[in-house]
Simulated scan of single mutants.
Amino acid sequence: MPKQILITDPTLRDGNHAVGHKLGAEAFIAYCKAAEAANVPIIEVGHGNGLGGSSMLVGESRLSDPEIFRISREHLINTRLAIHVIPGFCTIKKDLSKAVELGVDVFRIAAHCTEADVTQRHIGYVRESGKEAWGILMMTHMASPEVLLEEARKMESYGAQAIVIMDSAGAQMVDDVKARISALVGGLSIPVGFHGHNNLGMAVINSVTAVNEGATILDGTIRGFGAGAGNTQLEVLVGILHKLGYDTGIDLFKILDAATMAEKELGFIAPSISPISIVSGLAGVFSGFAKPVARAAAEFGVDPRDVFFRLGERKAVAGQESLIIEVAKELAAKQ
């Protein structure tokens, strides 16, 4: 029997970064229908920064979270509905409870790679509500395999039913992925997954590496739509996994149809590895910072590459957008 790989598709969440969080109802409906037709098992939807992420600081969403959940739920029958949850952006009482009420199936509770403690209450609430909770560790190039395992074990103890590590900056090489995935697979009793970004062109090979090291969950977005240089390109990933003998349950031709539809009919522009994306990956800075860095650099008359490398030195993470302005000001003052 071929080894089963569970694919989660965050096109309608991470892809929202690529369009300034402005995906409209028509995009959610069209892509949910296409993904459902292709037998994609899980679709993740929402603002790019997840539940409660819409704000002036990180970008306001065109649709509210409840609108997104209602629209998506209506057009998904066999495909499960997932959301990204970062404690601090959302509240349990207002946001998380509403998501449960509106039929979200899988809650991916995320934290910076060394801050798993903040997920305990959220994971506990989701499990008590009878829903599926995964632990997500972000920016994992910033922690050693040993530290990641320690943090992942915390999430497992809180009730997480899977752990996914994110290469949020697209900074990891094959050996980095090998070390991290093998440590987690060997040290946990729940499934392990990988979420790649393509800043250095490594997203697909890193995802395959993760599977070869024992991961059974992979993230991928159609045409690679996502922050910065984009995510692991879903239709490429599915084709390669099938070629290698893995079973995703996804219809290859129909996911290829979804890729054609997404670019032609939804107005998406497929991401590419731009010079600034390469710098983001080399600096180890969150891919979603590309646009705010460009704006700040232009405003203060500094080189965006310098901003990225300075942010990397200061170990900036998602949610610290205000630090971009601070760094740009500092660089301008030194000129």
Rank of each mutant, 00 (worst) to 15 (best):
V285R: 01
S280L: 15
A283V: 05
E263I: 10
A262D: 02
F286N: 06
I276Y: 03
A283Q: 06
L282R: 09
P275N: 03
I273E: 01
G284C: 02
A283P: 05
F289V: 04
L282E: 14
V285G: 01
I269P: 15
I273L: 07
L266V: 10
F289T: 05
A290Q: 07
G267Y: 06
I278A: 07
E265V: 07
L266D: 07
F286S: 06
S280C: 08
K264E: 12
L266F: 13
S280A: 15
V285Y: 01
G288W: 10
I276C: 01
K291W: 07
S280Y: 05
V279N: 04
G281P: 01
F268A: 05
G281D: 03
I276Q: 05
V285S: 01
E263L: 12
A270I: 11
P275H: 04
S280N: 00
F289K: 02
L266Y: 09
E263K: 14
S274M: 10
A270Q: 15
I278E: 08
E263R: 12
T260K: 13
L282T: 05
I273Y: 00
S274D: 10
A290N: 07
S287F: 04
V279S: 03
G267P: 09
V279W: 01
S272V: 14
I269H: 12
E265H: 10
G288P: 09
A283E: 03
A290S: 03
S280R: 07
G284Q: 06
I276N: 00
I278Q: 12
L282C: 05
G267N: 09
S277C: 14
A262C: 10
E265W: 08
K264D: 12
V279Q: 01
F268S: 06
F268Q: 08
I273V: 15
S287D: 04
M261K: 14
F268M: 13
A270S: 14
S274V: 08
A283H: 03
I269G: 12
M261F: 11
L266S: 04
S287P: 06
K264L: 12
F268V: 11
E263T: 13
L282Y: 03
A262W: 08
A290C: 02
P271Y: 02
S280D: 02
L282H: 05
M261S: 08
E265S: 04
G281H: 05
L282M: 13
A270F: 09
A283K: 06
F268E: 03
A270L: 11
G281K: 08
A262L: 10
G281A: 04
I278D: 08
T260G: 14
A290R: 12
P271A: 08
V279P: 00
K291I: 06
S277T: 02
S277E: 00
E263W: 02
M261A: 08
V279C: 06
S272K: 15
S277D: 11
M261G: 06
A262Q: 09
V285W: 02
F286I: 12
S287H: 06
G284T: 11
A262P: 04
S287C: 10
S277P: 00
S274A: 03
T260V: 14
G267M: 05
K291N: 03
T260W: 13
F268T: 09
M261R: 15
G288L: 05
L266C: 11
T260E: 15
P275E: 01
P271H: 07
I269W: 05
M261Q: 10
A270V: 13
F286W: 14
G288Y: 02
